[in-house]
Amino acid sequence: MAISRDEVLHVAALARLELSDEEADRFTEQLGAILEAVSKVSELDLGDVEPLSHPLDLVNVWADDEPRPSLPLEAALGNAGEDEDGHFRVPPTGMTRES
């Protein structure tokens, strides 16, 4: 199954990657070849097989609701590119987003 250049640009946007024209061309070709290879999984008829998302059969791993110390502010911000008044600073988002 090949992938078009537009589809590559679409997934790049989903994945928040700004691709150059050269990258878009190259990745269209490479991703097309990879997708064709991995499409091999569709050869198998596995309608009645339960998907396996995890190799271990663990359930119910929880922690008690007991607080542990948070980081000092300097440590929290220490690796940040930009900070201001104890906040992480980023360019304007211009949009609101809700959970």
């Binding site: 999984v41 596995l46 097989v49 339960e50 396996l52």
Partner: peptide, 13 residues
């Protein structure tokens, strides 16, 4: 893709 691959994964296991 993903759903089918997870089924293949069970087959492998």
């Amino acid at each position: 893709y993903y759903g089918q691959a997870q089924r293949v994964r069970r087959v492998i296991a």
